[in-house]
Amino acid sequence: MARPRLEVADIFRGHGPAWRQANAGHVSLQQLRVMSAIERCRTAELGGHVARCADCAYTTIAYNSCRNRHCPKCQGAAAKQWLANREAELLPVLYYHVVFTLPAAIADIAYQNKAVVYDLLFKASAETMLTIAADPRHLGARIGITSVLHSWGSALTHHPHVHMIVPGGGISPDGQRWISCRPGFFLPVRVLSRLFRRLFLEKLIATHQAGRLSFFGAHAHLADAQSFAAHLAPLRKTEWVVYAKRPFGGPEAVLAYLSRYTHRVAIANSRLIAFDEQLVTFKWKDYRIEGRDRYKQMTLATDEFIRRFLIHVLPKGLHRIRHYGLFAKGSCADNIARARELLAVARPEGQPTAAAVDPGKPSCPCCGGRMIIIEVFARGTTPRQRPTDPTTAIRIDTS
């Protein structure tokens, strides 16, 4: 893939040192590590290798990636491998996309308690789906869920929500039948919304009572139980946003759809337009507007752009992709096999799809021949071999 004209790494390298100095003492170690990883990604600082075409002797240098899960360049390759692993789990049914979003008043609490509240978001949304799907009045089946956490809106604001990809049906409680949902309709979103609201608030209050929430600045008063209860009271009467998109079918469509969500970072390099010491301009989508007018440009102060990017750095150890129900890891293989048996389809066989192609073994850009590694060089060193043409690092961007 061709190198984007502008990258987040360019912004971090150009303005990162000044930003870190100005914000010393207010940046977490995890955020500093993410900045450092992105700045060094696919540069000589991480080492790399020299590859030569076995047919035409074309020679190129490829620098190592940082493999940080917040890096725009690394997540495309990670997504391909993850999708290849998921391919055998796909079922020949329609799939649905359901989104659970936290209200702004809860998002403010999540901002200061990311690990705890993000975990509650996963658990409450999954429990909601599994409970309503198991109800005979709606589906009456055990379903499988793949959940992906996103903490951002298109303008890089803090907007925590979970994307779920769910097959349109499940296994009956006795394990003897596959129960399909109604055509074009999975589960009632209003019922999902209200159960999600109740479950999440119950879990959040229990977490507060257990002393697991911290509050700072303007929210310091929420440490008091009565103030916290008063803060949550209006939320019991509002409708929480649960959105179900139209179904899409076929394994290829599911893989393509998943690839848009599983390993996405706060902003892709392809959305960046311009950068200087003072300003960053990027493309964003205003979801409140329909049609082509929703695509806009935004310009932020460079300091503010970096701040917004870094607020989406996940707490260490937090898993942002989780599986529930039939897809829970302990019993996923058995459940998939049983579902395929009930649907009367065999396990998929044959050649790997494009999603399974090893991105670490590119073909020659000149003749398409096989590239052979002829030299590996360590971090911070210069390769002995020289490239045939000016070096073009292999860069994979999320979009």
Rank of each mutant, 00 (worst) to 15 (best):
M1S: 15
R3G: 10
R3Q: 12
A9N: 02
F12Y: 13
G14Y: 06
A24T: 15
H26L: 13
H26T: 08
S28F: 13
S28K: 04
L29T: 10
L46G: 02
G48F: 09
A51H: 01
A54F: 08
A54W: 04
D55C: 11
T60V: 14
A62G: 05
Y63Q: 08
C66P: 02
N68H: 09
P72V: 04
R86Q: 14
E89G: 01
T101N: 03
A107F: 04
I109R: 04
Y111F: 15
K114V: 04
K114M: 07
K114T: 05
K123D: 13
A124K: 06
L130H: 06
A133T: 06
G144Q: 14
H150C: 01
H150M: 00
W152F: 11
S154L: 01
L156R: 03
T157R: 15
H159Y: 12
H161W: 09
H161L: 07
P167W: 09
S172C: 13
D174W: 03
G175M: 05
R194G: 01
F200I: 09
L201P: 03
E202R: 14
L222P: 00
A223K: 14
F228K: 07
A229G: 04
V242M: 04
P247Y: 07
V254H: 11
V254N: 08
L255H: 10
S259Y: 07
R260Q: 13
R271D: 02
R271L: 10
A274H: 10
L279E: 15
V280I: 12
T281C: 08
K283Q: 13
W284G: 03
R294I: 00
R294F: 00
T302N: 03
F305R: 01
R308D: 07
H312I: 03
H312N: 07
L314D: 05
G317R: 00
R320E: 11
R322G: 00
G330F: 15
R340M: 07
R340P: 05
Q351C: 07
D358W: 12
D358M: 10
P359L: 07
G360Q: 15
S363V: 15
S363E: 14
P383Y: 02
T398H: 08
